[in-house]
Simulated scan of single mutants.
Amino acid sequence: MHTKFQLAEPWWLLAIVALPIVAWFRGRRSVAAMILPNAGAWRRPSVIGGTKLSTTLIFLSAAATILALARPQSVATERHSKSRGYDIILAVDLSRSMEAEDYFVDRKRSNRLQAVKPVLSAFINRRENDRIGLIAFAGRAYTAAPLTFDHKWLGRQTERLQIGLIEDGTAIGDSLAVATSRLLEGAKERAGEREGAFIVLLTDGENTAGIMEPMEGAKLAKDAGIRVYTIAAGKNGYVPFPRRNERGERIGTSQEFLRVDTETLMKIAKETDGEFFRAESSDTIDQAFEKIDETSTIEFEVQQYSTITELFSYPLYAAGLLAALAVFSSRNKMREALA
């Protein structure tokens, strides 16, 4: 809930400008005088000179009255959104081939995983109404993060992804099976509260490991009503690849031949009514995720309620109190003068 203060008729405040002008003219007005012989013998204190306090109070009372006429209000605004988000699993390849340095980020050569991470983070941040989970796969597929609305935590988990965390290989079929399983579990938790579910599969190679074939995993997703968006990362052919010694320390760069199985990824997308994207650069990876974001975004209804509370009574009470004090002060001074 958001609360703000406003004046319903602020133009009344212009009248406050007139108060100092009135005070200035009142101070300059002339008082008639009569010259009498021996006046000092019967002189009494002037009542007029002792009304400064009451005059000040009267002016403050007038200012408070003007503020009341301007109708100060407090406006409490409450927003209610009726939305149903998606459950999304990001399945990211962590096989050795993701170390290939055929991408450029900020004009610097980068490996495929380094180029993918900021794009993943940007996608996660844009999907604020969705639960998102993370599957990491190489020779096997693991749940790196369950479905969650905590996108900051998920971003940190994404940043921790590293090549070599899982035994080498590319288990595309297994990754689809694990992702589908996690989404089916999520469907039970949010029955009737989600718009749907889909998988984003990002890989740069061929299926070389795992128990399940890629199309078997795709069939599991299809039977569960889950679309799969496939992104083929990297270039076919010879690409720069880091050379490492037995201790894993980099000692140079070599050229290795790598192949992306775009045909299988296209079949997976077609089988599940998803879409295939070819991403040979960091820009095209970003464009692929933006396209997915546009395709699978839901519009939701937002209702806004405003409660207006009139506050004019407070300055009006203050004006009355100040006026009463002015009258009391004036009468008290008059009694002292006549005593």
Rank of each mutant, 00 (worst) to 15 (best):
205 G>A: 03
149 F>Y: 14
184 L>F: 04
224 A>Y: 09
191 A>P: 07
186 G>K: 05
177 A>K: 08
143 T>F: 02
174 D>F: 04
140 R>S: 08
192 G>N: 10
222 K>M: 08
213 E>V: 00
190 R>C: 10
214 P>T: 04
172 I>P: 02
208 T>I: 02
137 F>R: 09
156 R>Y: 14
148 T>N: 11
181 S>D: 14
203 T>E: 06
195 E>S: 15
182 R>Y: 03
191 A>Q: 15
156 R>P: 07
138 A>T: 05
158 T>V: 15
186 G>D: 00
216 E>L: 11
190 R>Q: 14
174 D>T: 00
164 G>I: 07
148 T>A: 13
203 T>C: 03
214 P>G: 03
175 S>M: 12
203 T>N: 08
138 A>F: 02
146 P>D: 10
140 R>P: 03
160 R>E: 15
155 G>D: 13
167 E>W: 05
170 T>I: 11
176 L>P: 05
153 W>C: 01
151 H>R: 12
222 K>P: 03
201 L>C: 11
209 A>V: 04
189 E>F: 15
134 L>P: 02
196 G>V: 01
148 T>I: 13
186 G>R: 07
193 E>S: 13
195 E>I: 11
216 E>I: 08
162 Q>F: 12
147 L>W: 03
196 G>D: 00
200 V>S: 01
138 A>I: 04
179 A>F: 11
199 I>F: 12
158 T>K: 09
168 D>A: 08
212 M>I: 14
214 P>W: 02
140 R>C: 02
154 L>F: 08
198 F>L: 08
140 R>W: 01
203 T>K: 09
183 L>M: 13
163 I>F: 08
190 R>W: 13
209 A>T: 06
179 A>L: 11
210 G>M: 00
140 R>I: 06
183 L>N: 10
147 L>R: 07
181 S>K: 13
141 A>Q: 07
188 K>S: 13
204 D>S: 03
173 G>E: 01
220 L>E: 00
194 R>V: 14
207 N>P: 02
219 K>V: 09
173 G>T: 10
144 A>E: 04
154 L>Q: 06
149 F>N: 07
219 K>Y: 02
224 A>R: 13
150 D>H: 09
